[in-house]
């Protein structure tokens, strides 16, 4: 695969505060890369630097090996889908979608041809004469995407594009977006704070915290082999055991519960069940450890036939291979 975007020792400071400390990153052509992190972690700033709305304080961004620092946003071969869509309220759906082609002085016949294609693609043909105000949130979102992809950008930047929608709609649009990306083959750089969304859609996830990229890897790798404590606790749920200057992370679903009198070899720790929450497919069991100020969470499959009672004494254990050792 070919590198499409390369960030070389990028750093961003506002006044004297470092928002994004220096780092480098390469993004491959056709890739779906997600920048994931809590709000204020610098992911939007990073996206805006790639789009050209912010300049990195030091470092250089390359698109197809060409440096971008003197290329204004309107000459970068990328398009952005904004968080609140930023549709032009004084234009119809059609005019909104055609705006990019008009600005690039594409000839009228070509404009019409591509408009019809894109309208068909996002299923907005019937709503083409409406103004953004007359559309639902989901429809506005489609217009925003259509307005960007009609330009055949090299890279599509998406800033929390589903953030303003309700849960159900978000779920179905996640799939649609993923399919869109596969079919068009455009590189997506996607910003979100929703880890489920990131997991469901991305080829690679860059987990960000306080401006730093903590880890870049596939969703499975991020989940199974977190490299930092932040990644281990931010993605999914985790139990962290601090022992002898190291942290061991064990996912709740890897923790097994045993009655006290069973096979003692598998027991790692003893405790009392503090709470058990039934969630349909699984049961979340909270175990208060003996002699330690810590509560462990264990996911037990609801169908395993075992019934754990609050107050019951149990032993917990896990396979050595499920233990992830993290630096402090």
């Amino acid at each position: 695969m070919k590198k499409i975007i390369h960030l070389d020792s990028i750093e961003k400071r506002f006044a004297d505060t470092v928002v994004v400390p220096s780092f480098s990153l390469s993004i491959e052509e056709g890739e779906f890369l997600t920048l994931l992190g809590p709000s204020g972690c610098g992911k939007t700033t990073l996206l805006r630097m790639i789009a050209g709305f912010e300049q990195p304080t030091t470092g250089e961004i390359f698109l197809d090996e060409k440096p971008l620092s003197h290329v204004p946003p309107y000459q970068r071969d990328m398009n952005m889908v904004f968080q609140q869509y930023a549709l032009f309220p004084h234009m119809t759906v059609e005019q909104n979608i055609l705006f990019g082609l008009k600005m690039k002085k594409v000839n009228a016949a070509e404009q019409q041809k591509r408009l019809e294609e894109v309208l068909q693609y996002v299923q907005l043909t019937e709503l083409r004469k409406r103004t953004p105000k007359q559309l639902s949130g989901g429809q506005q979102q489609r217009v925003a995407i259509a307005r960007a992809i009609i330009n055949n950008p090299r890279v599509l930047l998406l800033d929390e594009p589903l953030g303003a929608l309700d849960y159900q709609l978000r779920k179905s649009l996640q799939l649609e977006l993923k399919n869109l990306q596969k079919n068009l083959g455009i590189t997506f750089i996607y910003v979100t704070h929703d880890q489920e969304e990131a997991m469901a859609m991305s080829d690679r996830i860059a987990v960000m915290n306080k401006g730093r990229i903590e880890q870049i890897a596939s969703p499975a790798e991020i989940y199974n082999s977190p490299q930092t404590l932040f990644v281990a606790t931010f993605i999914g749920e985790n139990n962290i055991f601090r022992e002898n200057g190291t942290n061991a992370a064990i996912r709740p679903e890897k923790i097994k519960l045993y009655p006290i009198d069973s096979d003692k070899d598998k027991h790692k720790k003893l405790g009392t069940i503090a709470d058990a929450v039934f969630l349909g497919n699984l049961r979340k069991v909270f175990i208060r450890l003996e002699g330690q100020d810590m509560t462990v969470m264990a996911h037990q499959y609801a169908g395993d036939g075992l019934d754990w009672q609050v107050g019951e004494q149990v032993a917990i254990g896990w396979a050595q291979t499920d233990e992830v050792i993290l630096p402090c």
Binding site: P73, Y74, N79, A86, L87, P89, F99, G100, N151
Partner: peptide, 25 residues
């Protein structure tokens, strides 16, 4: 500032943005 950014993102120069987006709005 989002609308003006969107306009620039879609290839409009600052003057085109002024003419087609900012002034009408």
């Amino acid at each position: 500032k989002e609308l003006e950014e969107a306009s620039q993102d879609l290839g409009a120069t600052p003057w085109e943005t002024l003419r087609y987006v900012t002034l009408p709005l």
